[in-house]
Design a protein around this nucleic acid. Sequence first.
DNA 1: CTTATTTTGTACAATTCAGTACATAAATAT
DNA 2: ATATTTATGTACTGAATTGTACAAAATAAG
Lengths: 217, 217
Amino acid sequence: MTTNEIRRGRPRAYHPDEALERATEAFWRQGYSGTSLDALSAATRMNRPSLYGAFGDKHALYAAALERYIAEGREQMEVALDEALPLRNALMRVYDGALAMYFPTKGAARGCFLIGTAVTESMTDPDVRERLGRGLREFDRLFEQRLRHAQTEGELPATADAEALAGVASAILHSLAMRSRAGDSRAALRAIAESGVDLICGRSRPRKRRNSRRAGA
Amino acid sequence: MTTNEIRRGRPRAYHPDEALERATEAFWRQGYSGTSLDALSAATRMNRPSLYGAFGDKHALYAAALERYIAEGREQMEVALDEALPLRNALMRVYDGALAMYFPTKGAARGCFLIGTAVTESMTDPDVRERLGRGLREFDRLFEQRLRHAQTEGELPATADAEALAGVASAILHSLAMRSRAGDSRAALRAIAESGVDLICGRSRPRKRRNSRRAGA
DNA sequence: CTTATTTTGTACAATTCAGTACATAAATAT
DNA sequence: ATATTTATGTACTGAATTGTACAAAATAAG
């Protein structure tokens, strides 16, 4: 991707991709307004002028972080929604992949970067609102596409409303994104995802999983 | 509620409740970190020292705003979920009430104050995370309670998992809260709510409302 | 080696931030 | 009237904010 051209002048002391990832993590934790350039400088281990040189101002850096996150999310989702798998499994793979991101192996739960930060900023920043909207619509589209495929395979009735079901599938994802920031446990969120999948795929018999562990954080 | 005791000294030039409401609106638009005390002072039309005297520091003011919003939301939801109404209508009343808040009659869409601001702040502020969690659980509880009632009335099968369905009902609400900040139109969000209600209540025949208007913002 | 080019690191400027000190104003109590 | 109490309004402090100027450093080109 990043073609290694022969660059003149002093070489960079950072990897742009790594730096963007670290900047993303800083925004992820503290939000856009709550993340200072000092914090970004520390996170990326780039000094201030290098940050500006590489990404432009704070807003451009955040925009790049959002773009990268959305693109990666789409790729992960495309993989998870493998059409060779049963619809149930495919959907759960999306939610499990999301939960893996929302609950890092080390450190506190962090939820979804896009939802956790852009939703606040979108009110006063039309550019962020636009990116947030495009991101959400992208995920809607992938769900819908996969559901339509399930219809052609007979996994879902041909009369089902794929667009509507995709909206519900997305809603489950949105809920996981938020709840993981509200102190809910990963297990509790996975149970919610399963409920959603049951409902979308049309459980023949309602599961009787009473007393399943649902402990808080 | 606020007992009008005989107060000595210079009378206040503001109404605490009104001021808290205006402060809420400022936070609603700009988030916690993005709202300066100057902005709060302007919104409440209270000068800085009066703000501190009345509410304490910025954090305490935000906490009070959250508390008030959650309490009001609970009340509205209790009214909407009237047990005398069919489950379908009751649920749609909740979503319609939410959309009425998220899309004010004048001004841009603003979504949910709790979700739109606390989800960002919850990462670095345990107190906010706690309040966010309690708020969400409160709404879960009301949904679940209403769904259990529907079971006793035979509107839902006795074998249904009320807790799980309540999670889905909440997820729909969470999705509306976010999407309204992402540029989605109110009509599109209402369609999503209807899809969710259909799924929760178990539509006998999948609705065929193809080509219903779903225009963007 | 010299020059051109690019990045780094320090240091700074101008603003904005949260929070407070203090004098003044406006009410009640005696 | 005078004292007491409470709130207001101005002005301020110290810290944090974003963004930039500029010299030194590190590389390639000639």
